[in-house]
Measured scan of single mutants.
Amino acid sequence: SHFELRVGTITLHFDNISEELAEELEKLAKNGVHADEIRRWWEEWLK
């Protein structure tokens, strides 16, 4: 499923992401983690 995450002024787009993972990314964003860090985390997870 597709997921969009708003982090400050940036909107990150994720394809084929589980609800659980989407929730984890939302938690990171709410805790003030920068969009670049979240994207890096996601790319690492995909490997």
Rank of each mutant, 00 (worst) to 15 (best):
L5Y: 03
H13Q: 08
W41V: 14
L46K: 09
A29L: 04
E20M: 06
E26H: 11
I38H: 01
G32Y: 05
W41K: 14
E43W: 09
A22N: 02
K30H: 11
K47T: 11
L12Y: 06
W42T: 04
W41S: 06
V7A: 03
T11R: 02
H13I: 15
W42G: 04
I38A: 03
R40S: 12
K30Y: 10
W45R: 04
N16V: 05
R6D: 12
T9Q: 14
L21W: 06
E37I: 06
A22P: 01
S1I: 15
D15A: 11
K27R: 11
R39E: 09
T11I: 14
I17W: 02
E23M: 14
G32I: 05
H2Y: 06
I17S: 01
T11Q: 03
A29T: 05
K30C: 05
W41M: 13
E26R: 13
H34G: 15
R6Q: 15
E43M: 10
L12F: 08
N31Y: 09
L5V: 07
N16K: 05
K30T: 10
R6H: 15
A22I: 15
D15K: 10
E26K: 14
E37N: 09
D36K: 05
E37A: 10
S18N: 08
R39V: 15
T11A: 03
L21N: 07
E24F: 15
F3T: 03
I17F: 02
T9R: 03
N16H: 07
K30I: 10
I17L: 05
S1L: 15
N16T: 04
G8I: 05
I17T: 02
H2R: 09
L5G: 01
D36S: 09
G32R: 02
F14A: 02
A22G: 04
G8Q: 03
A29F: 04
L5R: 00
W42R: 02
H34P: 15
H13N: 07
E19A: 14
L21H: 04
L28S: 02
E37R: 06
S1Y: 13
E20N: 08
R6Y: 08
F14N: 00
D15L: 12
H2P: 08
V33G: 07
K27G: 12
V7W: 05
F14C: 00
A29M: 06
V33D: 04
K27S: 13
V33E: 08
W45K: 07
H2W: 07
K30D: 08
E26Y: 11
E43K: 09
I38F: 05
V33F: 12
I38Y: 02
I38W: 04
W41G: 03
E44I: 08
R6F: 08
R39K: 13
L5D: 03
L46T: 09
L12P: 00
L28Q: 09
E44V: 07
E44L: 07
F3M: 03
T11V: 15
R40N: 10
E4S: 02
A35E: 07
D36T: 08
W41A: 12
V33R: 11
W45A: 06
E26A: 13
L5S: 00
S18D: 06
E23H: 15
E23R: 14
F14S: 01
T11H: 04
L25Y: 02
A22Q: 14
K47Y: 09
W45H: 09
E37P: 03
E26I: 15
